[in-house]
Design a protein around this nucleic acid. Structure first.
Lengths: 219, 219
DNA sequence: CTGGAAAGTTAGCACCTCTTACATATGTTA
DNA sequence: TAACATATGTAAGAGGTGCTAACTTTCCAG
């Protein structure tokens, strides 16, 4: 915003703010600031509408500053998405709290939170899953995704009374993931004339859980 | 009007083709040539790795030439994706040929072709569905997508013995779409350690069709 | 034949990513 | 406290990109 003024001058003038941010020359935590700026820009303008220059303007530093903290633009994005995935996972864990063990409700709760995240932070969601694979192939991101999927697998297993993740559990889990994933994308892309309401979503989520967790094994 | 000379191949033949046909000042059908160049580049480098300059180089024209045929870069992409969606729809119709009416096999055939398209032309798929909505909000694209979804809705209706698209049909259709859509994305993004094989896919597709087309109504 | 429209061209602006050379602030050490 | 090392910033610039303006070549219809 207005912070794009010359930071050097402000550094001397702004002694009072020294408690919060030691000085204005040194941003304090530029890395975090840039990640937050990146997040906001991606959320606002979409995954492809983001530029490093914009992030610098938003953070109030020169266009070269980021390269002290990140190798390049891509690494900035990876760092931001990684933060998002951590948030994503803890949201899902939070949604599970208070729901009785070994019930399908736990599965639908995961799905609901998945969709909510996709809608609320759709910039991050699209970056992570929208097929930017060639650029965002960082192993940390893959691990973060796997860790989240593992939550689902564990819930499916206990829901089916299995003590471990069998092939059947994995297949049902993958089918559930596919459904929720596709639903999220279609909602984000507004590819549905009707049927976008929250109650519709809830109904579909519990319906798919019921149909995929009961009956004979899928394989 | 149009001199139906073959454009792209000669353009790619580079200087030699230029010699044969004396002056190539007029390309012949530059619009089609640029669309094809765009398609190839997007397929090769991903949705975001495409540049107008590259397309011009590939088509063998100056960087200003496209703007005689397209308003801007975005319209080039829209035109290319639109062509892809037409191809997509006719692929699906082709996959239905020879399969008995009112059978779940028709549903799974649609799903199989959907996934195949996503994998084979994943650049187009990602552009259409990967959340570039803000840029690719062309109504023709939306209609093309709807027309393809209508195929599925019709098949679901006949499979359930309905004469028209009821709310139940629409909901089941949407759930099927979500599943296949998500499966496609997960496969494109290689988000599956195991379970990526063609037989696994087939099995999951027929399984989801069975579970969503039988039993009591979803709503 | 000929003039205007269509379809190319070159030149160039504004902006973007990213690099390199240099400048400043801060903490530590003597 | 002085001074150095280091972390962190700046300024300038190379090379790429989207797009426009103005010019040139070709096509075609009267």
């Amino acid at each position: 915003m207005k912070r794009s003024e010359n930071t050097l001058i402000e550094a001397n003038a702004d002694r009072t703010g020294k408690r919060l941010k030691k000085s204005r020359y040194h941003h304090g935590d530029l890395r975090a600031g840039l990640i937050e700026a990146t997040r906001r820009l991606v959320e606002e303008k979409g995954p492809d509408g983001f530029s490093v220059s914009d992030a610098c303007r938003l953070a109030g530093v020169s266009t070269a500053a980021p390269y002290k903290h990140f190798k390049d633009k891509n690494e900035m994005i990876v760092a931001m998405v990684l933060e998002g995935m951590v948030r994503f996972r803890s949201n899902i864990l939070g949604a599970l709290e208070g729901i009785p063990e070994a019930t399908p409700e736990r599965i639908t709760a995961i799905g609901r939170e998945y969709v909510n995240f996709a809608l609320r932070e759709n910039g991050i969601f699209r970056l992570k899953f929208g097929g930017f694979t060639d650029r965002l192939d960082d192993p940390r991101l893959q691990r973060a995704g796997q860790a989240t999927f593992d939550i689902l697998l564990h819930e499916v297993a206990t829901c089916l009374g299995e003590s471990e993740v069998t092939d059947d559990v994995r297949q049902r889990g993958f089918m559930l993931w596919s459904f929720v994933h596709g639903l999220s994308f279609l909602l984000v892309d507004k590819q549905l004339a009707t049927m976008g309401g929250e109650s519709d979503r809830d109904h579909m989520l519990s319906e798919i859980a019921r149909r995929l967790l009961t009956d004979r094994p899928v394989s």
